[in-house]
Nucleic acid binder design. Structure first.
Lengths: 220, 220
DNA sequence: CCATCGTGTCGCCGAACGGTGACGTCAGTT
DNA sequence: AACTGACGTCACCGTTCGGCGACACGATGG
């Protein structure tokens, strides 16, 4: 009954009235797909991230995603490729006119820069949430690209400053980064973290002050 | 989401509880459902947490979940009710034979206790990941119950110790908790966090040492 | 001219989802 | 014994999902 061709025939003809052609431009379509995927992930989160949703948002057929990116896998990989540039694009490289004399000066500044950059970037926030929620190879690659870019940035900014002796810098910095990431994610999801409100700019000032104190406590 | 055809095949769901005929015992069924829900959430994560999956694991019909819990909402609420007891059940109240003379002593110990408790509890880990990934009223209630229980615990353990003056204890502690949570989540998902490996017990010792140093840095 | 190939579109499939109405079946009450 | 109501089960609905085969169209080049 559903497959009765008699019913389908007139329908196709009626739709044909509006030509409304999509221009044949592969690279443009590819960009549209990638842009749609990024905005979808940023706005809806990884939960509702799928072939159908991306295709809908890109205004194209999902088949093209398979053809051009090899499915969601390749698409995510393409997103991950941009992650390497994230730090460079979103975080200023200069010192903001400050003289960073000690490693503590540096890490205090970098912590706040990272905090603000993350607060301003919904896409990366979603990706970080994804990283701690799923354990697929897919996500692991994303995570790796991001942490590598982050490590590079840290290293580049360090310059000739030497960290204090006797401190496991990698471990301490990892904990600081973890704190910042979770703080921002919690705030983004629920407006608070462990009883600390994180909505108004006043709230964030308090958080930033506490973060500075922690960094200074460990790095002087 | 992101289904590889490879991983599609071995989707073996939990086996039914018993071939034996189901007894007419509402309270027993309710408990079975709640237990199934908790284990499902702990093992599979919130992504695959749904009416059908819970019913399958509980070995009962999903209709009963609607009848007894009013759907997933009520079921999650029931899970959340247990969260209030989590801290009490999972974290020792005594000081482990140590004398906690200062607030720094206290927070160092509490930080490590919390870290270990979280590492040992997959259910709460999944819930924390849920909290930072979704922003529904549902999850918000879970989050609130958890943070309230945590605050109570902190307060109870504090005893008569007074935190140092001039420090925003709430903010600093929130950041410490955030760091611990993210560290554990990252480790659980990818075995590392910001370039810091978190697999072997040796890795965790390094993390614990760094955490202690941070706590001591801010609280003396 | 026709043949080929890249591009875009369409419709269908099997599966899983959340949700609901209807139907057995058994226990306690009247 | 008959009724009632709670407990458990089943089948079905509409929707969405990922994935695939087939086709329409336009450009390109023999």
């Amino acid at each position: 009954m559903l497959n009765d061709p008699m019913v389908l025939a007139p329908v196709t003809e009626a739709i044909r009235v509006e030509p409304e052609k999509r221009i044949r431009d592969r690279s443009a379509t590819e960009k549209a797909i990638l842009k749609a995927a990024k905005s979808l992930l940023a706005e809806e989160g990884f939960q509702n991230f799928g072939i159908n949703a991306v295709a809908r948002r890109a205004g194209c057929d999902k088949q093209l995603i398979y053809r051009y990116y090899g499915g969601l896998n390749g698409l995510v990989e393409a997103i991950g490729a941009d992650l390497g540039n994230w730090v460079r694009d979103r975080i200023p490289e200069d010192t903001g006119g400050m003289f960073l004399l000690t490693y503590g000066d540096l890490m205090e500044r970098l912590s706040l820069l990272f905090l603000e950059a993350l607060r301003d970037d919904p896409l990366v926030r979603r990706i970080v949430a994804w990283e701690v929620s799923e354990s697929t190879e897919q996500v692991r690659r994303l995570s790796e690209a991001r942490s590598k870019a982050l490590a590079n940035w840290l290293d580049r900014m360090r310059g000739s400053l030497t960290p204090p002796k006797g401190v496991d810098v990698v471990a301490v910095n990892a904990i600081l980064i973890a704190a910042i990431q979770h703080l921002v994610l919690s705030a983004s999801a629920g407006g608070q973290c462990a009883g600390l409100a994180l909505k108004t700019s006043k709230d964030w000032e308090k958080a930033a002050t506490a973060l500075k104190r922690i960094v200074r406590g460990v790095y002087g």
